[in-house]
Nucleic acid binder design. Sequence first.
DNA 1: CATCAGGGCCCTG
DNA 2: CAGGGCCCTGAT
Length: 325
Amino acid sequence: MAKTVKLLKCNNFFIYPKKPFNFQGTFFKPSHFPSKLVVYDNGNLIQGIRIDGDLFGLIISDASTKRTSRIRIRAYSLSGISKEIESKIKDELMVRYNLDIDISDFGKRFKSDEILAESLKKWEGMRPSTAYSLYGFLMVATVLQNATVGRSIKMIDSLLQNYGVKLVFQGKEVFEIWDPKDMEKITEEELRNLRIGYRAKIIKKISHAFASGEIDEKELREIKDKEIVAHKLRSLYGVGPQSVSYILFEVFHFYDALNYLSPWERKIISMLLFGKKTVSAERIIAFAKRRWGQWCMLAIHYLFEDLFWRSKREQIAWLEEEIRK
DNA sequence: CATCAGGGCCCTG
DNA sequence: CAGGGCCCTGAT
């Protein structure tokens, strides 16, 4: 079963994101499917991270003051961390959570937009973000395919139990995804025994692409052309338009990554924009592009996440229908 | 009990 | 470009 690593040494430091900044909205996305890779506990975001092959446990919390946006990082390790590692962790979080980007233009531009104004007021400073590495995100996207949420959770959990690392620190427990190289010696047969079906082949192939260096997250992040990134991602076996659209937005933070809407999201957004579930994806996309231009997906994201936040407090019957368990 | 679609994607024709 | 097949599950 999963290797367990206890991380006893703690280092404290801060990250300063650009303003406007919204901690909750950026670090916790209620619409996302839950996995043991991330724990949201009492305002703290708990996750693991792998830097140069070493594992760290992170407790991330809001430490903003009236004047300053600030994030506290408590980094747990085996034997303490150097300044160099500290700065690598900072850089990686800056990138994953999109913290060094100024998104004030979006807020200024649409604060009076009838559709957006309310969610903008609540969530201004929220960014598209991911707790995962690109590889981790792809693994999650793979188990999401053609399965109910319940089954997806079972699949990722059993993968983590077998190949992940359990990080234990500060009384918390969270998993970090395996290294792509670890998959090289696992057979497809063995993966299939975890009841992940045809996805075994996908995991093998994507892992190999990362292990061999054929695909590299850092390189992709340098590319500013969305279509080139999309094309490169699509060249991976088992990665189609749905996975790419999530990744372009959440991992690479292209605010206009809106070319594809899955059926369940289409219904929800249709309801949000037009008050009925029946509007086609093409019409929704055209509408959003015309209204919000280069921020079209970001705008949808604000509406979508705001809705899911509301649904945590109050029953929204029509939404419950669309969220498959 | 059987059937079916699911928070996709590949492959074929 | 449409449509069948893929693994397995839980819902019907």
